[in-house]
Design a protein around this nucleic acid. Structure first.
Length: 676
RNA sequence: GCGCUCGUAGCUCAGUUGGAUAGAGCGGCGGUUUCCUAAACCGCAGGGCGUGGGUUCGAGUCCCACCGGGCGCACCA
């Protein structure tokens, strides 16, 4: 249990006794700057005004009723009225000992799961199958995987969803271009991804330059979505190879997304039309009608729709009883000449042939409403359609077959849906979520509670020049090449730093270090900000990097190996038992600091689950590793003369290793190593 | 123009419901190895937290305005 949660009720009780229970709610207790205290309660400052007493006086009265002597030294009042607490080493030792016992068996490192697990869908990865995976896919995979791992670890039922793009406009271009290839090769599945990549690039080029090609490409999408057999056959061949490539990359990256987590856009194809129909019933004009002028009216000069929806607008005004017939049309037309229409509440309508949802609050440069376009004028569905169908599927549909229940052993009926995508898509998701709420699809059918819809957005990947991370010629960097380079660079460093490693070990270490470095440098930063990709920074093996953390872990493993070897084989079991049960002796500042840090682990993991910010965990693990290194320098473990002290320090080592392993490997998806 | 987001040390970034003298890492300077992996450790220097108001006992954090950067804004995802 986080230490704050142990302390809070103590303060709550003391405040209640001092001033009455109405003042006792949720007192503020937090970890403090170690210069002043381990923990600090600032409730006195907050209460001073309500009680109209000086804060220090309030603090004194809290202290007279406060009972914490079992865990703290005598509390001090400082500054304007802070109550400072210094934890007793003996109490820290006892708490750590409890952790150690847990840490040594199923290795949860003292983290309790949540009381009631939720069903959480985490949508991440999501590459477009029309092209080879590139750096643009890196952050979603790495961050999404960490989030999914943390939530699962906390006891939630996590459903990983890899919503790969295989049914949109880009596929139309690719298929159109592939028609020309198909004449020579009848088996598309045997064409390697790199060839498809080239094909796709040509397609994009032609699409831009040749309107005829572009029109045909759009037509291919419609044919695909209408299940034209020849188109589907070609499409399947492309997808098969592309999925294989995708698997390969995730495997290399150590991202736990498998084939069964894939539910591609095309999975929802039969659900699109019913979804639109359902949405129509929920949101289309008519019935009680819209409240105020929500005609969708646009300037023809700006190539937008002009459907001055006489029908819609007059229906609106008629329904409100204001005007009738032709006069209504005229009044609406006048009104819209003066100023752009304003959407007052969500509604669905056709606009210039496209089927759209209009929502309050979304306007373009000219203050005209921006719709969420669900189906294009040519009949093709857009990603808003598949996203809406997928969201409905995740929240509302019972999964009856075992295949559909497979990722999580129950019908999903999500309580929380998390999208891990680029921040540039935030408006899309805002509109998507607004639409789902407007249609009342966001109630969990089992609990009736509103489903938490979250866009865990992340910033762009930039080069060291601060511009989008591309090759010199301006192309996006392929993930395969990037990861290979990371492993190669790591291999060079490993060869230099530890030439004694065997060839096989060196390869294994290089992979863990290289991939780990790439993942860690992505995760360590607040995901919402843009992130500058720098080889030298991520592989420079000091500072806050993956390799530094992996190194701290290997140092512990090395100690533990030696400790094990030191005891003779027959005595080993007994030795280990006595060592594991030995009382902790926290005497040096380094031991105390390490113990205090270890106890904070659980709180940090829960915070990551709450805010979906893996960098909290990175910061924590780095600080832990720094404190372990200080301990390592100044507190000899194996050399400690007294056996009790040796055992105590060995326990600290084991506990630190457990936290590092769980944090790095289980939660962030970064491999730990026994040696490097 | 509207919306979102960011502006903290030379560089890259932390700063969890507002709490004390704003913290790391890198880079710079200076030290540490007969001792468990020196891929390490210890010390020093370095900041008007974009600007101006406001709320508050108290603001890097909340509110408003402005300046500057990034992104988004109708048939791409």
């Amino acid at each position: 249990m986080p230490i704050e949660d142990i302390l809070k009720p103590r303060f709550s009780t003391a405040i209640g006794l001092a001033f009455g229970s109405e003042y006792a709610g949720n007192p503020m207790v937090q970890a403090a700057d170690p210069k002043f205290a381990d923990y600090q309660c600032n409730a006195a400052l907050a209460l001073a005004r309500r009680l109209s007493q000086p804060p220090r006086k309030v603090a004194e009265q809290i202290l007279t009723h406060l009972s914490v002597e079992d865990l703290c030294e005598s509390p001090q009042i400082a500054g304007p009225g802070f109550i400072n607490l210094r934890l007793r080493p003996a109490w820290l030792a006892q708490q750590c000992a409890a952790l150690t016992r847990e840490a040594e068996s199923p290795a949860r490192a003292g983290v309790e799961g949540v009381a009631v697990g939720q069903t959480v869908v985490v949508d991440y990865g999501g590459p477009n199958l029309a092209k080879e995976m590139h750096v643009g896919h890196l952050r979603s995979a790495v961050i999404g995987d960490a989030i999914a791992r943390v939530l699962a670890f906390l006891g939630h039922g996590v459903v990983r969803q890899n919503h790969v793009g295989d049914f949109g406009t880009q596929f139309g271009m690719l298929i159109r271009q592939a028609r020309e290839l198909a004449a020579t090769s009848r088996n598309e599945a045997t064409i390697p991804i790199t060839d498809w990549e080239a094909c796709y690039r040509q397609a994009v080029q032609r699409d831009r330059e040749d309107p005829v090609f572009a029109a045909q490409a759009r037509q291919e999408v419609v044919k695909l979505q209408q299940a034209d057999p020849e188109t589907v056959r070609l499409w399947q061949g492309i997808c098969q190879e592309s999925r294989r490539h995708c698997r390969e990359i995730f495997e290399m990256l150590g991202v736990a997304l498998s084939e069964r987590d894939i539910r591609a856009e095309s999975y929802y194809k039969d659900r699109l039309a019913p979804m639109v129909e359902r949405l129509r019933r929920a949101l289309e004009l008519g019935g009680e009608g819209p409240k105020v002028g929500l005609a969708e009216v646009f300037d023809p000069q700006r190539r937008r729709a002009v459907d001055v929806t006489a029908l819609t607008a007059s229906a609106a005004l008629e329904a409100s009883g204001a005007l009738a017939g032709a006069e209504a049309v005229e009044r609406v037309a006048e009104a819209v000449e003066e100023k752009p229409p304003v959407v007052m509440r969500p509604f669905a309508a056709e606009s210039n042939g496209a089927w759209c949802v209009f929502l309050p609050g979304y306007v373009d440069q000219d203050h005209n409403p921006v719709p969420l376009i669900v189906r294009k004028a040519d009949g093709a569905y857009l990603y808003a359609a598949t996203d809406l169908a997928a969201l409905y599927f995740r929240i509302q549909e019972a999964k009856t077959t075992s295949e559909e229940q497979a990722p999580w052993n129950r019908d999903w009926r999500a309580d929380r849906v998390i999208y891990v995508t680029d921040a540039r898509q935030s408006q899309h998701f805002a509109m998507l979520f607004d639409t789902v709420r407007a249609a009342h699809w966001d109630r969990n059918p089992i609990t009736g509670a509103p489903v938490r819809l979250e866009h865990a957005a992340f910033g762009s990947l930039l080069g060291e020049d601060g511009k989008p991370f591309k090759t010199r010629s301006g192309e996006s960097i392929k993930l395969q090449e990037l990861l290979t380079e990371a492993v190669d660079k790591a291999a060079a460093v490993v060869a230099q730093k530890n030439p004694l490693l065997s060839e096989a070990t060196r390869r294994q270490v290089a992979k863990a270090v290289g991939i780990g470095a790439v993942k860690y440098s992505d995760l360590r930063q607040d995901r919402t900000s843009d992130y500058v990709f720098s080889w030298s920074r991520m592989l420079a093996l000091d500072g806050n990097t993956g390799p530094y953390l992996q190194y701290a872990y290997t140092r512990i493993q090395s100690i533990l190996r030696k400790a094990d070897a030191a005891s003779s084989a027959p005595a080993r079991g007994e030795h280990a038992g006595r060592s594991a049960a030995a009382p902790l002796q926290l005497e040096t500042p380094q031991e105390i600091a390490l113990a205090r840090r270890l106890l904070q682990f659980a709180g940090v993991v829960h915070a990551v689950g709450r805010d979906l910010k893996p960098h909290y965990l990175c910061t924590y693990l780095y600080e832990l590793a720094v404190e372990f290194s200080a301990f390592y320098e100044s507190c000899p473990v194996l050399q400690a003369g007294v056996e009790e002290l040796r055992f105590s320090r060995l326990r600290l080592c084991r506990l630190t290793a457990a936290v590092l392993r769980v944090g790095l490997q289980e939660l962030l998806g970064i491999a730990v190593l026994d040696e490097m």
